Simulated scan of single mutants.
Amino acid sequence: MRHASLTLFVALGVTACATKPPAPPAAPAPQSTAKSALVNLAPASGSLVSGRVMLAPMRDGVHLTGTIGGFQPGSVHGLHVHDKGDCSAADASSAGGHFNPTASAHGRAGTATHHAGDMDNVTADGNGQVQLDIHLSNVTLGGGAANDIANRALVVHAAADDYMTQPSGNSGARVACGVIQVKG
């Protein structure tokens, strides 16, 4: 009996030593360091579209609010964060392509496959204005993480995004562009 107890004790000790230690906790997701940002949208491609958009970090992304005007009443437009914070070209081509740090295919925000800068289309009201109230998930504002949208461009397009055509959703010319400028 004594021999059996010793064997069991040794076996339990060996088993305990062979068990893997618990994995270290996952690194925390990057957090926004800015309190807010502002975008002054200026016309591009000969349009009359302009506006002002405020951005505020939230727990799982960034919230955009503001007003964009100069549209035809009832018209629908694509809206995206673009990779470069440069709106110097007359057609806003200097802003580069959609912000896409994970090299995903273009798609509709909220679906499994889309660029980090993809958002749902916006529709102008009867006065040719859009009141923005959009939550952009899985991005940060400030801090320099791969998914940081600070100092990138917000671009409004002439047509609706079809959410399928690669790489940009066939949303037409860039009719307004502004740099996402951190305020604090």
Rank of each mutant, 00 (worst) to 15 (best):
D60A: 13
G172T: 12
A116M: 01
D148C: 03
A124E: 13
M54N: 14
L154K: 11
A26M: 00
V175G: 13
N151T: 09
L48C: 09
K84E: 14
H3P: 14
Q129G: 00
L12A: 12
R108N: 01
G117T: 00
A29V: 11
R108V: 00
G184N: 15
A176C: 12
A173H: 13
D91M: 06
G117V: 01
S168I: 00
D148S: 04
Q181A: 09
P73T: 14
G143Y: 03
H135Q: 07
F9N: 12
L38C: 07
I134N: 14
A150N: 09
L79D: 02
S94E: 13
D133C: 04
L55G: 03
S45G: 03
A159H: 04
I68R: 02
I180Q: 10
A145G: 08
M119D: 01
A159P: 01
D86V: 14
G96V: 11
P43L: 15
C177Q: 08
I68H: 04
N40Q: 10
Q181W: 01
L38Q: 10
A56K: 10
K20Q: 08
A150V: 14
M54C: 09
D60T: 12
Q72T: 01
T165W: 05
M54P: 00
A37D: 10
L12R: 07
G110W: 12
P30A: 12
A37L: 11
S171I: 04
I180K: 05
G110F: 11
A124D: 12
A160I: 13
H135C: 05
N100Q: 12
N127L: 13
A145H: 09
A116K: 01
V76C: 03
G66N: 05
H106N: 03
I134M: 15
S45I: 03
A11P: 05
A37I: 10
A89W: 08
L132S: 07
R52C: 06
G143W: 03
L12W: 07
H98I: 06
D125C: 06
L6Q: 10
T67P: 09
D118F: 00
G143P: 07
G178L: 11
V139I: 10
